[in-house]
Design a protein around this nucleic acid. Structure first.
Lengths: 335, 335
DNA sequence: CTGAAAGCGCTTACAG
DNA sequence: CTGAAAGCGCTTACAG
């Protein structure tokens, strides 16, 4: 006999009533409610999610798509999303697209698993067909892309403007950009923001100082290290570097050290994401603060809302420039 | 009409045959097999895992328990486990017990979700009742604890002995221990290993130099920072520090810098886990190498094996001492 | 070697 | 306000 039936029996009600008590889907008299709750308690009854899913076509299972879980930025988003999802009765599986690309096959998997919603914490153009497929199948999506549903995104524009303006104010004119990802991606907004900010300061974003990412576009410390070596191979005529994220910045700093270039004396460095490590670097890394935990929390809430038909708004979070010890001024006598 | 039935119809067979083709549970003639495969392809049919789970009581869903996803050690384990699980047709959800303790309630959740197996990448005594419950319910468990099924663990003993022996060889006599977790935990084997290694070198593990963790026992950089401040508050009579993990070591180094103590000139520092950051520190952090990816991979394989009745062995991985720039010798004239 | 049918544990119109 | 019953999409004895 199923546990559910046992509970119904013990409470002297039908299975339907048990269901309504559990889900609050219909009014059940206080007395019956109590009896049911007591029976559930006594029998140690636990809902079987698979059965519920089969009946309702809802799994209570969300997915988080990241491109590198080893980047603490995503670990933080993941943790926060998980925490909030749990409060809402949802579970989340994090999918690292470093491991297996987010192809249509991956979407079949989501469908197979009855995933209710997905937060694309990362998005690259090549994911488009897969995402479209998921979207068309009815999987709720939260991402930076308006055409796939509600938007949850970070606005870097002001932060990057403030950062470039700060560097310019200190006398920096030749600022390099270390991408990690591909700057050709239409979604590589940070790069555009950087170009705009440079222009605003009347600075030239010299192509020579733009180091694009290399496949497989994992913007980690190794990538940053190699990007900086590449840059140093091209020229030493730059006084500051903006890295696409903190990992890349940290990697770049290692390459600078190896060339006995001093940060910030010779080169100023700015990262992005404000991962906890940045504050423990010596000197402390200047970076751009991104509300990672808030993103995770919001992603969970927005998805749960949408899934349950609760109206919800797009959310654009604002990144903020955070100065740090890796930024210094240009002294007279320097190029 | 269910997709499954459509497929059966299109292939001119029964649903049962479709099932056998999909699962390889019975011989099906090559001809029928082909017809079924073709029909599946044409209809774009995808298995519904919830339905299968209801029928078989198997979800194809694993859980990974970590105590801090933000520690790259666990991010790496998670990534590797996920990758291998996927190859085996399983999905994994990572549960951070920082967020919500691993209580019996958490286990009810696992049961409710029909989780097939769990890898306890972390274990503390207080989890015992919950783990026992999961175990008794039939959830397969991989952990460092033999009584809960197969063991997958890391042996630190030799690594720690080599590390202490290295420090002793350089003249260090007063070596501190920064725990982060609670040294009273019976599972805090590293601490025991450390004591043994000290004894072997004829060194005294002075209680004054043992800094225990503070609730909530999150062994992260902040914890390391505070632990070192605590230590410095007690005494400056130590020349080396072994931190329970790299994060704690990195945090400790910041506290040392603030007191203008130089690493390794004044104090040598050793961490544990060999997270990628360690190699990007300046100087490079001496640490203990842990085969994190291998753990994740093995965890997935072992769990899948056990769940599917394939015999599998316990696995004890070996950690290795990895010297680094944060270790220095004791010079004459020093205390 | 193949298929008809029961059953897994839920939810949800529907009838009362 | 409550319950009987159908149905969600699979798997698996069982019969043939």
């Amino acid at each position: 006999m199923s546990k559910r039936k046992e509970v119904a029996l013990a409470a002297g009600v039908s299975e339907a009533t048990v269901s309504h008590v559990i889900n609050g889907t219909k009014y059940v008299s206080p007395e019956l409610t109590m009896r049911v709750r007591k029976a559930i308690e006594e029998k140690g009854y636990r809902l079987n999610h698979a059965a519920r899913c089969l009946a309702t076509n809802r799994s209570g299972h969300l997915a988080l798509i990241v491109n590198n879980l080893k980047n603490p930025r995503y670990a933080e988003v993941s943790e926060a999303m998980q925490g909030q999802a749990r409060v809402r009765g949802y579970i989340v599986s994090t999918i690292d697209i470093n491991l297996f690309n987010f192809t249509e096959d991956a979407v079949f998997d989501l469908i197979s698993r009855n995933i209710d919603g997905v937060f694309l914490a990362t998005y690259i153009d090549s994911m488009e067909p897969a995402v479209r497929r998921a979207y068309e199948h009815g999987i709720k999506i939260i991402s930076g892309i308006p055409r796939f549903g509600k938007v949850l995104d970070v606005e870097y524009k002001n932060a990057i403007r403030d950062m470039v303006s700060c560097l310019a104010g200190l006398g920096h004119r030749r600022i390099a950009y270390l991408s990690g990802y591909s700057i050709k991606e239409s979604s590589h907004e940070k790069y555009e923001n950087f170009l705009d900010a440079m222009k605003e300061q009347g600075l030239l974003a010299d192509k020579e100082l733009i180091v694009d990412g290399q496949p497989p576009f994992v913007a980690d410390m190794d990538a940053g290290y190699h990007a900086m070596k590449e840059l140093l191979g091209r020229t030493r005529d730059f006084t500051a570097v903006f890295a696409v994220n903190d990992l890349v910045a940290i990697g770049a700093m290692k390459a600078l050290r190896e060339q006995e270039l001093w940060v910030p004396g010779d080169v100023s460095v700015v990262g992005c994401d404000n991962i906890q490590f940045s504050a423990y670097m010596q000197p402390e890394l200047a970076t751009i603060r991104v509300p990672k935990a808030e993103m995770g929390r919001l992603a969970a809430d927005m998805l749960c809302d949408i899934i349950n038909g609760i109206p919800c708004e797009d959310a654009i979070l604002t990144a903020k420039f955070q100065p740090g010890g890796t930024i210094g001024g240009i002294f007279k006598g320097r190029a």
